[in-house]
Design a binder for these strands. Sequence first.
DNA 1: ATGTCCTTGTTACAAGGA
Length: 262
Amino acid sequence: MKIATWNINSIRIRIDQVIRFLLKEKIDILCLQETKVTDNLFPFKTFKDNGYNFIKVNGQKQYNGVAIISRLPITRSYKKDFCEKKEKRYISITLENNIEIHNFYFPAGGIEPDIKKNPKFEEKLNFYSKVTDWFTKRNSKKKQILVGDMNIAPSENDVWSHEKLINIVSHTPIEIKYFDKLIKSFDWVDAVRYFNGDKKKIFSWWSYRVIEWKLENKGRRLDHIWVEKSLSKKIQNIQVLKKFRNYSQPSDHVPLILDLDI
DNA sequence: ATGTCCTTGTTACAAGGA
């Protein structure tokens, strides 16, 4: 079973790229973030015409928005507004094999890493706390997978320069503390690191502002795939498809694929 | 460090977010 996650930065502008990706990589389930579209305008038909008949969306105008596109039947889906700010940042599904997939778009957090000066940074930490509390209290019998744009690059090899980014939102010590609390809130395994080890640099996002993004390679690993520990031995492959950053009109994030032996 | 890209509102750009 192949599960992918991709911050698409507008589904409508990149729908052709997404369809090509789904068919070429034979994806079963795709979790999208930053769809930037209300549910009534979501391109359901294009996905259905290509064999993806099961779609769950939680979108809004202009900002945020998440969706799950599936070739396999969905038995249940669930949305939650963790910070009660009417922001569409989460949707989950359950499959017939009783696997539950959580799709998140965590807040970016603004520029200034100071909760007193920057309400967006406060919201980001708050959102992490709310999700942590939720998983701590939750008692589900389903097999769990969590994916999405978490907007935090937790370790040194998740950023191009640990020293230069230590005070930059996405890699600050306080954020990493919240990230660690969340991963400890349940039996989570960071599947990308589990599969690749800790030593190599892995990035999933390169800023649009760096024109020579490939040459400079100033990337960060903001997109994540976590699996419940009991699923970790079922991981057959993990891919971070850097080539998608090279195509014309790219998203600033590339897709990640988890291949599970299920 | 703020060079780009995307959306919206209003009608060729500016604002806001990332």
